[in-house]
Amino acid sequence: MTVAIFDYGAGNIFSLKVALEKQGATVDIIKTFDEANNYSGLLLPGVGNFDPAVQSMRKSSKTTFQEYVKDKIPVLGICLGMEMFFEKSEEGKERGLSVMKGEVVILPNKFKIPHMGWNNLKLRKSNPLMDGIPDSSWVYFVHSYRVKPKNDDIIVADSDYGITVPAIVNSGTLYGTQFHPEKSGKVGSLMIQNFLRECKK
């Protein structure tokens, strides 16, 4: 099975690639949506800044994200990748991919920013991504923004950082994690395995 990682040209996508390969996937790095999509899944990695990342997609491709995935292949947006699902972000001026309703806001400055380190998940509902993963599992976060979905129903799990941080969102074939599964030890590997299982379907 082959999945694609979209490269915004901003940073480390190597770890994500390695994490997917460890679970048996073949990984292509893509920089445009204009080529044929024969992939079983797409990953939007979690490094970079909102505007340059969104721009890298729009400038490189005539095909839009929506046209490319056509609600068919599962997409995993990690950190910034998940933030891009929403309509806008306080990190930039660009319009987001707008496949989820809501916005991205900066964490209140009474807390240490970035929210960086291991925090635990509080599960709101069951989800394929969480198969075999116990509630309260530790995952690795590093972010300065949080998502505020218009509809709370898409939130699968939260994390508590003094305020509630939506940690996993899911709507249809779109999955988002605010934390980095590729950096979250065994729990993260299991989550990637779960995502790849969805890609196989």
Partner: peptide
């Protein structure tokens, strides 16, 4: 920071 984000 501008290129890679603060967390890097």
């Amino acid at each position: 920071m501008n290129l890679f984000g603060k967390q890097c």
